[in-house]
């Protein structure tokens, strides 16, 4: 299933946040969306998954999602959005409970998702007992359990410390090697974009417009240090000035 964003424009209280975003995402591709803070990248992700209504434009799917996908557009949230009163396994199962599935299959799917994210031993733990990295693994397991066609990752590693982030990036690459989905990955972290994405969409500062789309030709397995240093430099050069402006801006409201 391919994805097409057609002229996405969005206003917040009269303020233009996104201006005419056109983007085609191929099936199975990982597209990172980067830009300075306040460029509307999370807004764009909200629109793609149907959580926000754009002022103008539309998101269309081309072709049908995989038959076994229970929730074609599935998010992984920056703040994890776990239910604190549910155990790890129950948080993952939440995504399945309203679907008609045999009990055995539901359990098998939850077990498989927990195993894939290294959470098998933590099934009975409560979120508050887990570190940030483990909590986000629960968020990822919950997303995988519905076999998404499009995985929408909204700054998934931004709430984590640098070491945990590094570990989770490796985990994400390992998971993506085993699971077929299209991924839209919003981040302000250039490393994550350069390490994980096939293409990087660079948005300009408010109003968000596509400034450049950078394709990364280095194979995922070889994306360490020097191999992607050039890509990283290039991305930073694209957003540096605007990031500085964004940082110096006084917040209104």
């Amino acid at each position: 299933m391919d994805l097409r964003l057609e002229g996405i424009t969005h206003h917040y209280d009269g303020l233009l946040a996104l201006d005419g975003i056109d983007l085609a995402v191929r099936d199975g591709e990982t597209v990172a969306i980067i830009g300075p803070s306040g460029c509307g990248k999370s807004t764009l992700l909200g629109i793609v998954g149907g959580l926000l209504k754009p002022t103008a434009g539309r998101v269309v799917t081309v072709g049908a999602p995989r038959a076994d996908s229970l929730n074609p557009f599935t998010y992984v949230f920056q703040d994890f959005a776990l239910l604190p009163w549910r155990t790890v396994a129950a948080n993952v199962a939440l995504a399945l409970e309203h679907h008609r599935l045999p009990r055995a299959e539901r359990q098998a799917r939850v077990q498989a998702a927990l195993a894939l994210t290294g959470l098998a031993d933590f099934a009975a733990a409560l979120p508050r007992q887990l570190s940030g990295g483990m909590r986000q693994r629960v968020g990822i397991a919950r997303a995988l359990v519905v076999r998404p066609a499009v995985l929408l990752l909204d700054e998934p590693l931004s709430a984590l410390d640098a070491q945990t982030r590094e570990l989770l990036m490796e985990d994400l690459l390992a998971i993506w090697a085993r699971e077929r989905s299209t991924r839209l990955y919003v981040t302000h972290n250039l490393d994550e974009a350069a390490r994980l994405a096939d293409r990087v969409v660079v948005l300009s500062r408010r109003p968000g417009r596509i400034r450049e789309i950078v394709a990364i030709d280095v194979p995922l397995a070889e994306r360490s240090g020097p191999a992607i240093a050039g890509v990283r430099e290039h991305l930073w050069a694209l957003i540096r000035d605007e990031a500085r402006d964004a940082e110096r801006e006084v917040q209104h409201g």
Binding site: N71, F77, A81, L94
Partner: peptide, 13 residues
């Protein structure tokens, strides 16, 4: 509200 949006994003009734 993010928990509620999460529920919506998974298609919970």
């Amino acid at each position: 509200r993010n928990l509620i949006r999460m529920g919506q994003s998974f298609g919970l009734p």
